[in-house]
Structure formats: structure tokens, C-alpha cells
Simulated scan of single mutants.
Amino acid sequence: MTQLKIDMDVYKAIEAARESFNESQNDILRRMLLRGTGAIIPPANMQQQGVTVARAERTTGDYGFLLNGQSFSFTSLKSAYRSCLLELAAQDPAFLPNLSKEETSARRIVATDPKELYKKTPHLADEFAEVLTEGWWYDTNLSQQQVESRLQTACKVADLKFGADLTLIFP
């Protein structure tokens, strides 16, 4: 194995190309590089090609969670939130469809269409909706309190006890 240093936008492009939870980053790169001509669209041209580009993450602190005794840690709230949703989805194939039925007064937690995330303000999808996993989107414009509230709802959907099965480690 060889380690590579990559920019955040390259990492985001790799993750956006993920087709399943079991796929390694090496598998994704192999598919991207060896498909057709092997050309990868440069980040500057990605939006012109209709590819959704995730905004670069800010390093904002030490965030993490414990899920069923397993510890996860991240440098941003957004990364911790996304990873927690993906971990819960990996445990139950019905999790994301069931979670998509849950909503706050103005937003859904996850949706198959980015505009469905923002019931009253669908134009926000262009700036704040990001791919969670293939076929699913999530809102990234959330405060820490909103993330905690959504993860409490996610625990109910996953039949987990918030604070016991899932514990948040936020600053």
C-alpha cells in the first residue's frame, strides 16, 4: 500500500462517487480512473458537468460519537453528523427510507431529492444540500443543537436509546 496526500476537493469527489458502504476509496479511484478514457473531471469543471460539488469542510474542533460502544472522532460537526447517519444506515437498510418520513417544521432530515429537504425554502438546496450516500441527500446548514435534535430523532427511527446506544461527544 502507498499513502497519498490529497486535497479536500479531491477527497469529496471520491466520496461523492461512492456506490456502496462496503466500497473502499481504492475501489472508487480504480473505477474512476479505469472507466472509459480514465479521465477525471477537474474540480473547477465539475459543476458545469452537472456534478454536485460538496463545499470544503471547516476544521472547527473535536467532534465525535460512541455508537454501540464503538468510538468515532472528527474535526467538524458536519463530518461527525454525516458519519453518524451513515453508520446508522449501515446497520439497517430501512433506516434512510424511514428517517426520510421524519421532519421538523421546515425541513426533512434526509431525502432522495435535495429540494425535498427544504419544504418552505427549496432554493436552499443549491447551497446546503449534500450527498449523504447514493440516492440520498442531507442538510449541512445546521447548528450543533439542530444536529443533536436530528440525531435524537434518528435514534428513535433506529430503535436506539439516545445517550446510551448513541452518545455525542461535542465541544
Rank of each mutant, 00 (worst) to 15 (best):
L77T: 07
M1A: 07
D9G: 01
L66K: 15
A111S: 12
A54K: 10
A13H: 04
G38N: 08
N141I: 09
A125F: 12
Y118W: 10
N22H: 09
P42K: 03
G69W: 06
K12N: 14
D9C: 09
S71Y: 13
Q47A: 08
F170C: 09
P122N: 03
P114T: 06
A54F: 06
T140I: 05
A94N: 10
I6Q: 06
G50K: 09
K101S: 03
A89R: 02
A158Q: 11
L33F: 11
S79A: 15
K5P: 00
T75Q: 12
A164D: 07
D113G: 00
A56Y: 02
A125H: 02
F72A: 06
P43Q: 03
D126C: 01
I40V: 15
T133G: 00
L166E: 02
V147W: 02
D62T: 15
K78V: 02
R107Y: 15
V110M: 07
G69D: 09
D139I: 05
H123I: 12
Y138E: 00
D62Y: 13
R18F: 03
A129P: 08
Q49W: 04
R82M: 01
F74H: 13
V10G: 03
L99S: 04
I41G: 01
L34M: 12
T59Y: 03
P122D: 04
M8E: 15
P43R: 02
T2N: 15
F128W: 12
Y63W: 13
I41L: 05
I28Q: 01
T104Y: 04
E134I: 05
S105I: 11
P171Y: 03
S73F: 11
Y11E: 12
I41N: 01
A16F: 08
D7V: 01
T121N: 08
R55I: 14
L34A: 09
I40C: 08
A94T: 14
Q25G: 10
N22F: 06
N45V: 01
R35S: 07
F128A: 05
A80E: 04
P43E: 04
Q144T: 10
A16P: 00
V10Y: 11
T37N: 08
R31V: 07
R18I: 09
P97Q: 06
G36P: 00
G64C: 03
F74N: 07
R58T: 06
P114Q: 05
V110F: 08
N45C: 02
E19V: 02
D159Q: 15
L29I: 13
R35T: 08
P97H: 05
K115V: 11
F74G: 06
F74C: 05
I169P: 00
Y118C: 02
Q48L: 15
L77N: 06
I6A: 12
F95R: 03
L85M: 08
